[in-house]
Amino acid sequence: MTMQVPAIGVILPSSNRVVERVTKSILADFPGVDACFSRVPYAGHPPDGYDLDPFLYSAMMLAQAKPRIILWNATRGALLGFEPDRKLCALIERETGIPATTTALETSALLNSLALTRIVLLQQGDAEEGARLSTTFATQGISIVARHDFGINDNFEASSITADEIAHRATDLASHHPDAILIWSTNLDGHPLTGELSKELGIPVFDSAAVGTLAAIRRLPIEDGAAYEERIAFRAVSV
């Protein structure tokens, strides 16, 4: 009898070019873990929540591959105020019987667990979205002390922002002496930069796509839990 490799199921926005790459890179350090992917439309959601039908369809398709957890690896939930993500997870769990989480919820939990409550933010949207994020993160006990708004409305275009531009903006924001820097879009390619930036700036730099992926891995029932926890802790500021 063969042993089934545990897997995370990942739902990502239709226009995302980064999440799958980040997930595969991280899983290179976790050879006993697999990943399955599905997509939902980026556009067409109500302003205060989600069009739930595509999520349910994607979750049901993922459920056929029997992942141990389903992750919505996107940051929209923070813009909505986090509660829609909690409701989305509850719906997915009820319909599939599989635990669910989101990058927005896991990021809030991570920052609070580490007492990193003064952060600076790089986010892809305009100033209005940036202001909304400042408000919604504050409801989670997290203060955005400074931010850079890239002003991008087309989600696909976020993936074309260069590594040099992201690093430059992060370095500028570090002058505000935050507890941490957060790259807040799973379609911003901050994943390869965070390790070196953390060392150079002397503060943690988190990539949102990586935070979601690592949180999902942490939820898996893995035999050598201590070794995996050590890798997760290292990866959190080294990816």
Rank of each mutant, 00 (worst) to 15 (best):
M1Y: 14
T2C: 08
S14T: 10
R17N: 13
V19Q: 00
V19H: 00
R21K: 14
R21M: 12
R21F: 11
V22H: 04
D29G: 09
D29V: 03
P31S: 11
G32R: 10
D34N: 15
C36F: 14
F37Y: 13
V40R: 00
Y42G: 03
A43G: 07
D48M: 13
L52H: 06
P54W: 03
L56G: 02
L56C: 08
L62T: 00
A65Y: 13
A65N: 15
R76C: 01
I92Y: 03
I92S: 05
R94V: 03
T96F: 07
G97Q: 13
T101F: 05
A104V: 01
A104T: 02
E106Q: 14
T107L: 11
S108M: 06
L110N: 01
S113F: 10
L114Y: 09
R118D: 10
Q123S: 12
D126T: 13
A127V: 13
E128P: 03
G130F: 06
A131E: 11
T136N: 10
D149A: 15
N155Q: 14
F156H: 08
A158F: 06
S159F: 07
I161N: 04
A163P: 00
A167H: 06
A170L: 05
D172K: 14
L173V: 08
P178Y: 06
L188A: 04
L193Y: 08
E196M: 12
P204G: 11
S208T: 07
A210K: 03
A215C: 13
A216K: 04
R219H: 13
I222A: 09
I222T: 11
E223T: 15
G225M: 10
E230Y: 09
F234N: 15
A236W: 01
V237P: 00
V239D: 05
